[in-house]
Nucleic acid binder design. Structure first.
Length: 351
DNA sequence: TAGACGTGGAG
DNA sequence: TCTCCAAGTCT
């Protein structure tokens, strides 16, 4: 893109968005927006937090369940921690759920129940960083904030053919994205950039033939669109090992613990076990006839692979979660895999 | 500031 | 099977 083409490109992008905007549960369509309908800041905020590093397809059902159960920020602020963590189970990055509650309570009890209306004020709330602050401020409150997520980084790096690799190039991409941000309809512009990145200007095989900006795109002109943005190589994932223990009693009650708020799977329910490292020692939570499940659980987190040996036992004791209160779906995915693996150990022993 | 922090789908 | 990656934030 050359100097002076920003305004024309911005208009072409909004024209495309007016025709192509995806229908999303948290979105007010351009037509409804033009008719004066305002997006609900609560729904915008909730969707943006859920969408952090998470696909639209995954978020849809979670968003529906959350908004049905907690229709406004006051309802969410009044929710029990365990209920919110259970509803978030499977969505990942569980610090988001902990910060979601902190943020809802801050809005409800320190801001009179209304979200702050500027990106600067929003960014002071838990779980709201530069991206989410700009997204909520522009979409819900029409602030001309520059929204930069992974989509925008990709689109901008291609429009200007920025060859410097991420994350070092981030400040330059933010600066360029700012040149494209319009004073009018900044929220629709932001959503248009992200829709474009998600549907046309995709990571592997961009569909430049359908792109409303192809005539101003420098990477397209040079035939290097699919190579951008360049990224620094990622460190290799180590493999860690662990032992984990699934106990139930004769009534089908289950022994669970709540993990500490900090760290991996923080605040989530799970089964007790060893640390995850090189070669952990056995550490059953109590004596029982532990039987090892025939196959270990394998799971990959963002920064390491995990192999868990699963031990199961039927045993009586205190502190079990009643069967009626236990749903595997309330567990993080790796713990759900452990639960599934334990079933084959249970069926192989009497009872 | 670079590493921690989940998961599921695509290629 | 395996790597990449998706509307990032926190420390």
């Amino acid at each position: 893109m050359r100097d002076g083409e920003e305004a024309r490109a911005g208009r072409a992008l909004l024209d495309w968005y007016d025709r192509q905007a995806r229908d999303l549960p948290w979105r007010v369509s351009p037509a409804r927006r033009a008719a004066g309908e305002q997006p609900d800041p609560y729904r915008v905020w909730l969707s943006e937090v859920m969408l952090q590093q998470t696909t639209v397809a995954t978020v849809r059902d979670y968003f529906r369940r959350f908004t049905e159960r907690w229709p406004d920020v006051g309802a969410l602020a009044a929710a029990a921690d365990a209920d919110v963590m259970a509803e978030w189970a499977g969505l990942g990055y569980y610090a988001r759920a902990r910060n979601l509650l902190k943020c809802a309570r801050a809005v409800a009890f320190e801001h009179g129940g209304a979200f702050p209306r500027t990106a600067a004020a929003l960014a002071a709330l838990p779980g709201i960083g530069p991206y989410t602050a700009a997204a909520v401020a522009s979409i819900a409150f029409d602030e001309a904030a520059t929204v930069v997520d992974g989509n925008v980084e990709r689109v901008v790096s291609r429009l200007w053919a920025v060859e410097a690799p991420l994350p070092g190039a981030k400040p330059e991409l933010v600066r360029l994205a700012g040149r494209l941000t319009p004073a009018q309809r900044p929220g629709d512009h932001a959503q248009a950039m992200m829709d474009l990145g998600a549907t046309i200007c995709t990571p592997r095989a961009p569909v430049c033939a359908l792109c409303p900006l192809d005539d101003v795109c420098a990477a397209r002109a040079r035939g290097i669109a699919a190579e951008l943005p360049r990224k620094a190589p990622k460190p290799e994932k180590p493999t860690r090992h662990g032992l984990i223990y699934v106990a139930r009693n004769a009534r089908g009650d289950v022994f669970l613990e709540r993990r500490p708020d900090r760290g991996l799977l923080g605040g989530m329910a799970g089964f007790p076990g060893s640390d995850w490292g090189e070669s952990p020692s056995p550490c059953p939570p109590f004596a029982a006839g532990w039987v090892e499940a025939p196959s270990a659980v394998r799971h990959t987190f963002t920064h390491f692979h995990l192999v868990l040996r699963v031990f199961a036992a039927e045993v009586e004791g205190p502190g079990f979660t009643p069967r009626a209160n236990f749903r595997p779906g309330d567990l993080p995915t790796v713990m759900r895999k452990v639960w599934d693996a334990a079933q084959s150990a249970f069926v192989s022993q009497p009872g």
